[in-house]
Nucleic acid binder design. Sequence first.
DNA 1: GTGAAAGCGCTAACAA
DNA 2: TTGTTAGCGCTTTCAC
Lengths: 335, 335
Amino acid sequence: MVSSSVKDVAALARVSIGTVSNVLNRPEIVSPETVERVTLAMEKLSYVRNEAARQLRVGHSHALGLITLSGSNPFFTDLTTAAEDGATLAGYSVIAGNSDEKKDRESGYLNLFEELRVRGVLISPVGNIVPRLRRMRDRGIPSVLVDRVSNDLSFSSVSVDDIAGGSLAVTHLIESGRRRIAFVGGPSEIRQVSDRLRGARQAVAGHPGVTLEAITLNALTVQEGRRAGEAIVERPAASRPDAIFAANDLLAIGLLQTLFMQGNIAIPEEIALVGYDDILFASASVVPLTSIRQPSRLIGETAVRLLLEEADDPELEPRQIRYQPELVVRASSAS
Amino acid sequence: MVSSSVKDVAALARVSIGTVSNVLNRPEIVSPETVERVTLAMEKLSYVRNEAARQLRVGHSHALGLITLSGSNPFFTDLTTAAEDGATLAGYSVIAGNSDEKKDRESGYLNLFEELRVRGVLISPVGNIVPRLRRMRDRGIPSVLVDRVSNDLSFSSVSVDDIAGGSLAVTHLIESGRRRIAFVGGPSEIRQVSDRLRGARQAVAGHPGVTLEAITLNALTVQEGRRAGEAIVERPAASRPDAIFAANDLLAIGLLQTLFMQGNIAIPEEIALVGYDDILFASASVVPLTSIRQPSRLIGETAVRLLLEEADDPELEPRQIRYQPELVVRASSAS
DNA sequence: GTGAAAGCGCTAACAA
DNA sequence: TTGTTAGCGCTTTCAC
C-alpha cells in the first residue's frame, strides 16, 4: 500500500481535487456538507498531505532551521526547546542542528536548510557566516543571530551582554579578595568566549594588583574542562591561580572534577570558581557553582518571534535585542 | 533575487536540464568537460537544489525522524548526537524532536514526519504507538524503537535491559545493607520506568527483610526529583527510606538538591542513592552519584543502522538488539 | 461553491 | 554522451 493523494480523496468524496485542497487550506469557503464528506474520505484513506508537493508549489517550507554551538550544553538545549515551543505556536516546526563549534558542520546544516527552503534560520555562528547569510537573505531566507550580535548590525540578533557577564564574574572574584585570576575558555573565534574574556579584562583593568591569565581550550565541554584542570593541578601550588572564571558551566564542572575531586584542591579556599550559563546542574555540583545566569528560554522565544516577523516582511529593519546577565553566587566562590 | 533552478543552470551552461540533473546525481556518466561547465554555472548562479522537488519526484526524503522522551536529558542528547553522526555518514539528516513524555507532542512529530515523508523514524515511545507505526510502515515509512522493546516484536528495537538495570541497582543497595528501599520514578506508562521498577521488585523478592516503596512522579526531570525530595524530607526520620533508587539521574540530582543540600540528610549514611543513565554530571554532583550506565551513543548508532537497512529492504525481519547496563558505584551509595 | 487546468523543480526513462 | 519529456502532489487562478 502506498500513500494516497488529493486525487484519491477527491475521487472517494466525489469532488474535484481543487475542492479537496480548499478544505485543506481554506475550509471556510467550502460548504459544510462538502467539508464533512471530504474529511470523511481523508480519514477513510488515512490521507496525509505531502509537504514536499505543497512546498514546491508555494515556494517555501513550514520549517525553521536552528543551529546552536552544542547539542549537549543545557543552555542551548533550553534555548532550543523554547524556540520549538514558539515555532509550534505559530504553526512552524524547527529543524535543530548543532555545529559542535565546527565550521564544516555549521556549513553542512546551512546547506541542508537551503535545500529545504526553510522559512528562516536561527543561528549561533562559529565562523564568519555573514556573507553566507546575506546571500541566503537575498534569496528569501532571512536569519537572526542567537546569543550573538552581528558585527555590522545588518542582521537581527538576540543576545546577552557577554562583556558585562565577564566583567560581573571577575569583579565578583576581585571583590572577594582574589588576585591571580585565570580565564579558562574555548576557541577564541567564538564570540561569546572572546567577549567574556574582554569583560574579564575590563574588570581587571581597574585593579593594579590583579593579574589575568587566559587559558585557551579547543571546546566548551566537560572533557576540555578536565584537561585544563589537570594542567593546573600539575603546577606547583604557588603558581596556580587563586580564582578561575570558566567560559561556561560545562568547563567549570570539568574543572571541579580534576581540581577538587582528583586534585584535592580546596574550592573555594585555594581556588574560587565561577562558571557561566547557570545550567540546571550548577546548583547541584560537587561544590555548588557560582555562575552567570542567562535567560535561555527568553532568547529562544524572542529569536523565533523576530525571525517570523522578518519572514513575513523582508523590509523590516534589523533589530538588536540584548539582555543583561545576572550573577548567582554559590559556594564555589563564597570565601 | 530568487533561487535559480536547473533550468537556469542548463541555460548558462548551454546543456539540457537532463544533463544538469545527471551531473547532480550521476556525474560519472557525463563527460568531464560538461561536468566542469555545469559546475561552474552552478557556482556562478549559486544554485542550490530544491529538495522538495527532488523528494516529490523520488517519493521520499533524505531525512530520518527521531523522537526522544526528553530534549534536556543528557542520555537522550548523546543518543541523538550519535544518531546524527551515523545518519550524516550515510547521507541522511535527522530531524530530532522530543515528546517531553507527552502523547500529543509525540503524535505531532509523527504527523510532521509523515507529511515530510521521512525515510524512516526512530522513536522512544510514550503511548502505545504500535498501530500507528504499523500504518506508517504499510505506507513505506519503517521505524525502529530506541531504548525500548516492542511488545509484540513486530518492530526492530535497540534497547538496554531495564529490568536487569533495576535489579542491578537494588541488589547493590541490598548488599550494602539497606532495608527500606524507595523507588522514585516517572509516569509508569513509560516502559523504561516500569521495567526498572520491575527489576527492583525482583531484586527485593529474594530478601524477606527488605521493603520496596514506589513513589510515582509526573516526569523524569530535576524538578520532579526535587518535589519527591521535599516529600521525603517532611516525613519523620523514622519513616524515611534508607535507600532510594531513582529512575534516572535527573531525578537523582533533584533528590540530592532537596535531601542533601536543603534537608541536611546525610548521603549515603542516612539515605543511599542510586540513579540511572550515568550522565556526564553524575560523577560531579554534590555527592558523586552511583548510577547505571547505558551505552547511549551505541544505541543511537545501531538504531540508525537498522533503520536504514530496513528502509532499503522492507522485507527484513525485525531484530531486537539489547544491551546490558552496568553498575557504576560512587559515593552516593558507598557505605 | 465547485471544477478544470497550469505549473512549481526535479528525476528518470527513453530517444537521438 | 546528451536531449526531450512525462509526471510526482499540490495550490491557485479563472471559469462556471
